[in-house]
Design a protein around this nucleic acid. Sequence first.
DNA 1: AGATTTTTGGAGAACGTTTTCCACGCCATG
DNA 2: CATGGCGTGGAAAACGTTCTCCAAAAATCT
Lengths: 356, 356
Amino acid sequence: MTDVTLREVARASGCSVATVSRVLAGTRPVGAETARRVRQAAEELGYRPNQVARALRSRSTGTVGLVLPQITNPFFPSLVREVEHALHAEGRAVLLADCDDDPEIEAARISDLLDRQVDALLVIAADAKRSRDAVEKAAAHVPLVLLDRGCGPGVADWVATDNATGMALVLDHLVATGRRRICFVGAAGTGSAAVERLAAYEAEAGALLPRGPGQVELGDFSLEWGRTAVDRILPSRPDAVVCANDLLAVGVLQRLRQLGVDVPGDVAVTGFDDIPMVDLADPALTTVRQPVRALAAEAVHLLGHRPAGRNDGPRRSVRLAPELVVRASSAPRAPSAPRVSSAEDTGSTRTPEVEQ
Amino acid sequence: MTDVTLREVARASGCSVATVSRVLAGTRPVGAETARRVRQAAEELGYRPNQVARALRSRSTGTVGLVLPQITNPFFPSLVREVEHALHAEGRAVLLADCDDDPEIEAARISDLLDRQVDALLVIAADAKRSRDAVEKAAAHVPLVLLDRGCGPGVADWVATDNATGMALVLDHLVATGRRRICFVGAAGTGSAAVERLAAYEAEAGALLPRGPGQVELGDFSLEWGRTAVDRILPSRPDAVVCANDLLAVGVLQRLRQLGVDVPGDVAVTGFDDIPMVDLADPALTTVRQPVRALAAEAVHLLGHRPAGRNDGPRRSVRLAPELVVRASSAPRAPSAPRVSSAEDTGSTRTPEVEQ
DNA sequence: AGATTTTTGGAGAACGTTTTCCACGCCATG
DNA sequence: CATGGCGTGGAAAACGTTCTCCAAAAATCT
């Protein structure tokens, strides 16, 4: 009933604690007959090694702390899932800390996890600037990898999606399907996603398209802002709206429908991230899918390979290419279909050059 | 740089390890002057107690295992969040285990958590029947509370939403706003939600309404089934469709729109759970909000109060009443006002903020 | 055959706490 | 002046492992 320890297995198999430990851990060869007896005794008694004692002695808990801003952010659950599975595959467990988007709480949680002797930390930084101190300090104690959101260069290893590539995929797709007046709805924040996606849009769009006023609108990453941005952008008569985020895109979609603008007939809309709700949107949203599994795999890979003792060497930064998921919201305009009433009737004379 | 232990604090403050432990843990009175010296030394050296050693000695890790079927199920993240916060408020940490909806994996994870000496377990059962064994065995070792999904009576303490009340709220609301031919789209599974919600519908509806054919359609908890169920249900000309689940409701909404059926004009639609995507649905979905925070609070409360030593006494089962959230999808048919193109979402109480 | 290496097993010291004793000094009481 | 209760502090035994030494036995080499 009560937990059975090495001592009891040793007594039952008539040998010493050391021997039992050795045969069970396979840490040193042991006589065949002895090993058999030990294994049988362990089996019969239902021995399970106490991981806490093991951790104390071997200075490794087999545990990794996962710190994130908000588990309710719809992009994170799948990331958490992949991280958890990848770590479990290595026999490590996940200590979860949700810090409510607050860098102060984040710092406290990191500190708590360190007290609990986690072997390593995986951090999705709450704030690019204000998370920096805590992350840097923690990285001095254990291997630490920043995931998705970074915080400044040289703070710690960092693995994230390649936003530039993702934005390029979107723009190439839109241009290839005949869109020419492509606006951008993004966020003004300092987070890496906000900054990089905007920069990528400007670089790509500058190269591909004429520059016009009212072409870029920046607010925050909210549904609400997606809705209001539509009103600011429509006067410039776009035929496509690229959003820095799926939530923005859903907001844009809602407002466009409300105004009677046909998607994708009049305007194509695209998002970024591929959060679960986007294929429930109507029309289903074309978006950029982050390589969630690969991100997780790479992050735990990096965790393992910091030279165990001290953390030296340069910080590594890994960017993984995302994938374009084309859905209805960016379908090429069917030249045949009769258009229903629409205020924004500008593109009807143009024939899309590419089909399907 | 390297971790500082009790020994070093003891040496620095010129007293014994025992004394230091006592003053820091406040476990026994200690001379004022000595205490001051100890505290100062601890402060200066930056002493942080090693939780692993503490756990080994005091046989309590301050850690709770949280086992769930699929973190990507949109209902769970908010539950995880509340559980995590409630536990952290008690100074306990959360060891997360996602078991991919597979009871075998679930059993393995539970076993792993027990080896890691969690003080208690919080389990959202993957399968009402096939999770039972593992849960029952685990409950013999540590305090264990089933959350949301139970598995059979008498297995362990259980806290869940009161599905009957929730269903009654929905039906009362619909009847009060003039709906009379109310159909039900649910799931045929054996999970507690599927069973209880159906039973509640039948009990309530039987009392309030005439019974007709084609009134109840059972499939699974998928968007897809929501869509196809619409076609099976429409012939009976309902003026309301009650769904056992938000996902079903969204599917129903999509198909109804496709068929040109007006919601809520012709048919009202309701869901259950209030997952984050439902106020993005169009029209926004009337649904039953589970009392997530209270569920979490009650669960951790129950965890704490199992008589620490052994688990005896009867199993407790707590049901918490949910709350009806009325949104556009069940708005009363306006007899006077001519309908405009689209109703602005009315009751959106929540605006998810996504940032990355 | 003796001299070496290799194998096998045990005793016991860690790991960093908490906690149980026990000792000492001090004060009150008999 | 002895006896006993407090208040304060230290020595040392746990907790359940892993791992370093040693010792003995067995195998290999000259």
